[in-house]
């Protein structure tokens, strides 16, 4: 990696200030993407602002809403009993992100802010209709994701927490890249009173997206057969040496059906 300055502020205000003042500053929220990128010299930040001392850790359950602080690790989410009682499909998703080491460093805020098109959490946030809380405002998941590696976050804006309303049931099904184990296709299906949301990660060129055709069909009839006839067009799908656009489009259907069948 290139040389950079390193700061570890203990207040949110200081962190926001450091990141707002310098367009070349980078936030470190676990570093499971940033550190490899730095090691490969693909990024040359002036300063890396480590968010680990901001106290943004923990999961709280209030009524039907679960709030996960931004710097909570995947491992902590996966192991949270209160969350598991409310949204077991979300703890399960967290338990399958990366590997054991990654899950003990990577954080939910880091994952959402990065919005990797193959990351798992964006599918959960979009399907569950999460609200992303930042140092300055609340952003609906529908407004938050703005294409591959792009979000509504402003320069220096930090995710402090993510609020998830608990669905009646939900499930996440992932087809992994055999090499990286990232999602080639991941589909999160969440059923709430009267309606269903389906979010797809890994597949689309513009990152996570909602599958409205499936949502309509499933809202009418929450059963795998309800979406059996819905073909996902390959236009706009990613294509690489592991999976063509056509294969991804097909897998969206397979993963969606499996998620519906398994929703709990």
């Amino acid at each position: 990696m290139y040389d950079f300055a390193y700061q570890k502020p203990s207040s949110l205000a200081d962190a926001v200030k450091a990141l707002s003042a310098d367009p070349e500053a980078k936030a470190l929220a676990g570093g499971m993407t940033l550190i490899p990128v730095l090691k490969q010299r693909l990024n040359k930040p002036t300063v890396v602002v480590d968010l680990a001392k901001l106290g943004l850790v923990g999961v709280s359950v209030s009524g039907n809403t679960v709030t996960i602080s931004g710097m909570t690790t995947h491992g902590a989410v996966a192991g949270d009993a209160g969350l598991k009682g409310k949204i077991p499909s979300l703890t399960e998703l967290a338990s399958h992100i990366g590997d054991e080491a990654v899950r003990h460093r990577g954080t939910i805020g880091g994952s959402l802010a990065n919005n990797d098109p193959a990351a798992d959490y964006p599918a959960a946030a979009l399907a569950l209709g999460a609200t992303i809380k930042t140092d300055r405002r609340s952003i609906k998941a529908d407004d938050f994701f703005q294409g591959m590696f792009a979000t509504a976050l402003e320069q220096g804006e930090l995710i402090t927490a993510v609020e998830f309303p608990a669905p009646e049931k939900g499930a996440y099904e992932k087809f992994r890249n055999p090499a990286s184990r990232y999602a080639i296709v991941g589909v999160y299906v969440a059923k709430t009173a009267g309606r269903v949301r389906v979010a797809v990660t890994g597949a689309g060129q513009n990152g996570v997206f909602r599958h409205t055709a499936m949502e309509q069909a499933l809202s009418a009839n929450f059963a795998p057969d309800a979406i059996a006839g819905i073909a996902t067009p390959p236009d706009g799908m990613n294509s690489d040496i592991h999976a063509s656009a056509e294969y991804r489009a097909h897998l969206v259907g397979v993963m969606a059906k499996r998620a519906v069948a398994r929703a709990y």
Binding site: N177, P178, A179, S180, Y182, D240, I241, H242
Partner: peptide
Amino acid sequence: LLSGSMMDYTM
């Protein structure tokens, strides 16, 4: 080389 790292070369 497209499979130039562990991200794309499946060990």
